[in-house]
Design a protein around this nucleic acid. Structure first.
Lengths: 193, 193
DNA sequence: AAATGTGAAGTTGTTCACAGCT
DNA sequence: AGCTGTGAACAACTTCACATTT
């Protein structure tokens, strides 16, 4: 994994912002108008001081003595002109998975998904045409480096990798790893008997 | 998420141990007998000094001027009497997923899996009988807290949660969260334009 | 000469304590 | 009075520099 140095804002803060966003969305759904750092922090599973410190990197959103306006903070953190948005220019909160690629695109599947499934050969053309920047890769270890090579060649700069190996990619490609075995081992170490 | 304080050995070291283990296994498969901290660290995606520091928490395994014996280190780190093993008493390197539970156990599936699929009603009995301690939960947000409650009542003390909410569980239950949306957002923040 | 092991230094992230608004 | 915002203290983690061993 790479370190894109953006001094000032800790990686972990950015990471937690996503959690806050989600909690805020839920609060709004439930018609809750204001929330204290205490309450929001609890919902997010962090300490209230940490939440405030995290927000402080991006500006001041709250009203002292009162708390945060849920809608404002949602906008502030997630949408317009602040936080991630100011760096990346997202249009919306989420990501859209627009297509899937498989070595056997014609295979029968029981789950109906709305995304089209293409053959691996179609990938370069598709990525180029749609300006895709990120890919989720869930192929076996034996194939993953090769797939990564193809993706990189197509111009993908962010890879979410589920295979338990360290991918060899150029400096400017960011790889995030999700490794179930490691998560489990980690769990097993910390659980009580 | 909880902090089970086991002073001395950093959480992150424990986490990385799983990565080292996997790299070592691959080296052995390839018939490589010795490896330097430099090479192993590269395979694991960490700095060599960090690798050495990590190993140092558990003892000294290497030979100065030479490196580590792959087989010895595999044993040392992963198997007998050291590292995780000395705390947890694993029998083997990995974990076995012994059963799956689903609200619709009879549903047609295209992938054949070797684990039996049971109904949710059978879960408490099964967990009790097999002494299961950990569960991977991949149900939608709307159901996950309820499922977690059931698991906790059954005696599960480690939950790997894929739903994007913070689970409310007792102190002694450890929850690890895997959140794809957050991984993606995190990626998108750090990738270059 | 080559590579480990480790105290010390440096860096990053978290929590505290409290000043300052509303 | 209540709650945010923040400098300062603290804790965790990483890296450095080098002594030590083979």
């Amino acid at each position: 994994m790479k370190k894109s140095e953006r001094p000032g804002i800790p990686r972990k803060t950015v990471y937690r912002l996503s959690i806050y966003l989600r909690c805020l969305a839920r609060l709004r759904e439930n018609g809750i108008g204001t929330v204290s750092s205490e309450a929001l922090a609890k919902a997010a599973g962090v300490k209230s001081t940490q939440l405030r410190k995290d927000l402080a990197y991006f500006g001041t959103f709250g009203t002292r003595g009162l708390g945060y306006d849920v809608a404002d903070l949602l906008v502030g953190v997630g949408h317009l002109g602040l936080a991630l948005v100011s760096y990346r220019g997202f249009e919306k909160e989420g990501f859209e998975i627009i297509a899937a690629f498989d070595a056997e695109p014609g295979r029968k599947r029981d789950k109906k998904i709305k995304q089209p499934i293409y053959a691996m050969e179609d990938l370069p053309e598709f990525v180029g045409r749609h300006g895709v920047k990120m890919a989720i890769v869930t192929v076996p270890v034996s194939a993953v480096q090769e797939v990564a090579n193809v993706l990189v060649k197509c111009g993908i700069t962010g890879i979410l990798n589920f295979a338990p190996i360290v991918l060899d990619v150029p400096e400017d490609v960011m790889v995030n790893n999700v490794n179930l075995a490691i998560e489990l081992e980690n769990l097993s170490y910390f659980i009580q008997d």
